[in-house]
Amino acid sequence: MRRSPIGLHPQTRENARVLGLKRCGHVVYRPVTNELAGVIIKVKEIIKLELVDRVDPPKTGAPSGFEVIGRLNPRIAPGSKAAKPLLPLRTRRSTAEN
């Protein structure tokens, strides 16, 4: 998707959603069908279309020579801010307790 469908007709926004496009810069791969060709024509102003012969799976995981054996939380993507350990919050003590 090249630009956001915000401000466009609701049907155009729905067509972008049907294609699976969620945000600017989002890339999806779909097989070529007559139904999708009609949807693509309706949103041609906000997308960039390229025909590809095959889709290579995205390279994820560890660098070469290493192997990922598990994750602490499979819902958290590695490298994200949420994957870093959090420190406990300091609580403010009242002066009477000291």
Rank of each mutant, 00 (worst) to 15 (best):
R3M: 03
R3A: 06
R3F: 01
P5A: 14
P10L: 05
T12Q: 02
R13G: 13
E14H: 14
N15V: 08
N15A: 15
R17V: 09
R23F: 12
R23Y: 15
H26G: 05
H26E: 05
V28S: 09
V28K: 08
Y29N: 00
P31F: 07
T33A: 06
L36E: 06
A37P: 03
K42Y: 02
V43Q: 00
I47Y: 03
L51G: 07
V52K: 06
V52L: 04
V55Y: 06
V55A: 05
P58S: 12
P58A: 13
T60A: 08
G61D: 02
A62W: 05
P63F: 10
S64E: 15
S64V: 11
G65T: 00
F66Y: 14
V68K: 00
I69L: 14
I69F: 10
L72Y: 11
N73I: 04
A77C: 10
A77G: 06
P78H: 12
G79Y: 10
S80C: 11
K81M: 06
A82Q: 14
K84F: 04
K84C: 00
P85R: 06
L86I: 10
L87D: 04
P88F: 04
R90L: 10
T91W: 05
R93D: 09
R93I: 11
R93K: 12
E97L: 02
